[in-house]
Write a protein that binds this DNA or RNA. Sequence first.
DNA 1: TGCTAACCCGAGTGAAAAACTCGGAATTAA
DNA 2: TTAATTCCGAGTTTTTCACTCGGGTTAGCA
Lengths: 145, 145
Amino acid sequence: MKLSTRGRYGIHTMYDLALNGENGPQSIKAIAERGGMPEAYLEQLISGLKKAGLVTSTRGAQGGYMLARSADKITVGDVLRALEGGLSLVECLDGEDCCDKACACPSRIVWQKLRDGMTAIVDGITLQDMVEDYRRMNAQEDKTT
Amino acid sequence: MKLSTRGRYGIHTMYDLALNGENGPQSIKAIAERGGMPEAYLEQLISGLKKAGLVTSTRGAQGGYMLARSADKITVGDVLRALEGGLSLVECLDGEDCCDKACACPSRIVWQKLRDGMTAIVDGITLQDMVEDYRRMNAQEDKTT
DNA sequence: TGCTAACCCGAGTGAAAAACTCGGAATTAA
DNA sequence: TTAATTCCGAGTTTTTCACTCGGGTTAGCA
């Protein structure tokens, strides 16, 4: 039950865009370098973010990516859903075909509660929140040291 | 970000024991058959549940497994932790070694919130709850049909 | 105009993890 | 004593993940 790199890289990328987006479109190369992520792979992931309508791109030289809307209008949930393919921990909640095996329906209730809880959490955190949380954390540290 | 079969089979198995445990120890064969799970594989998983102290076993003919304590004292979280190896969605929350890459710390806060939320949910559901929820569901259906 | 920096896209690959099997030893009720 | 059952470690197969590669398109800029 671990998050794949898709989710992690994705969040990191979006966070990067939230920070650096003011300075014009950011190239894959720049994002990958800052985040220590493999360039060619990141390209794939960003393509997913674009399909989901979370980022926009401008092609050609000096091109790159920017957030499709302001950072306080994009939630962590948006990003994870785009890259991880849904937040439910079991298949049988995605489609409507209930399974015949071990996932028979007493467990189903459990998975539903989990999914709903997780959804509420990640949809309650925007990129903007992340930026502010982090700033606050650093401010805290500056005081104590 | 899907649950592995370990978690699913595990929950199903424990639920089975909560239901059928009154009739003496349940053999792997019986549990596997009822749940449509591969017998040899289930053996492995139950061994994990035993190590975690969630079930007890009696060997020899007529042997099998029973819950180690009453169903209202075992949570879904206990089972998932035993079989999935922790509930955190990223490595860097398990050990103390913060990563150097894409999981740099702005994201960390997000994963912590998620883990804590998930933990609260699964620790709030006991096997007893599952049994009762399911009974209630069936009762509901009987009325409407 | 042409060069180069970038996005775009689909297919391919290697390693690792997940899911499951197998064989044999130890235990115990009947 | 036999058959049912747990116990245990090692092996195998399948699937997914993480990532690469090559070639195409677009557009700024000299």
